[in-house]
Simulated scan of single mutants.
Amino acid sequence: MNIDLSGKTALVTGSTRGIGHAIATGLARAGAAVIITGRRQEDVDQAITRLRAAVPGAQARGFAADLGTAAGFDALKAAEPTVDILVNNLGIFNPQPFEKIDDEEWERFFQINVMSGVRASRHYLPDMRRKNWGRVVFISSESALNIPADMIHYGFTKTGNLAVSRGLAKSLAGTGITVNAVLPGPTLSEGVHQMVAPGVDADAARRLADAFVKTHRSSSILQRVATPEEVANMVVYVCSPQASATTGAALRVDGGVVDTIA
Rank of each mutant, 00 (worst) to 15 (best):
R17N: 09
G20H: 13
G20Y: 10
R29F: 01
G31N: 09
G38R: 06
G38V: 05
A47L: 06
T49N: 11
L51I: 07
P56C: 03
P56G: 00
Q59L: 10
L67P: 03
G68V: 09
A71H: 03
G72M: 10
F73H: 10
A75I: 00
L76A: 13
K77I: 15
T82F: 07
T82G: 00
G91K: 09
N94C: 03
P95T: 04
D103Q: 14
F109M: 11
Q111F: 08
M115K: 14
A120R: 10
Y124E: 07
P126Q: 14
R135I: 09
R135A: 06
S141D: 12
L145N: 12
P148D: 02
L162T: 00
G174D: 09
G176R: 02
A181D: 02
V182Q: 07
P184D: 06
G191Q: 05
V200C: 05
A209D: 00
A211G: 14
V213N: 11
T215M: 08
H216P: 00
L222S: 07
L222Y: 15
Q223S: 12
V231M: 08
A232D: 08
N233P: 00
N233H: 13
C239F: 09
Q242T: 10
S244E: 08
S244L: 08
A249I: 01
A250E: 15
G256Q: 08
D259I: 10
I261W: 11
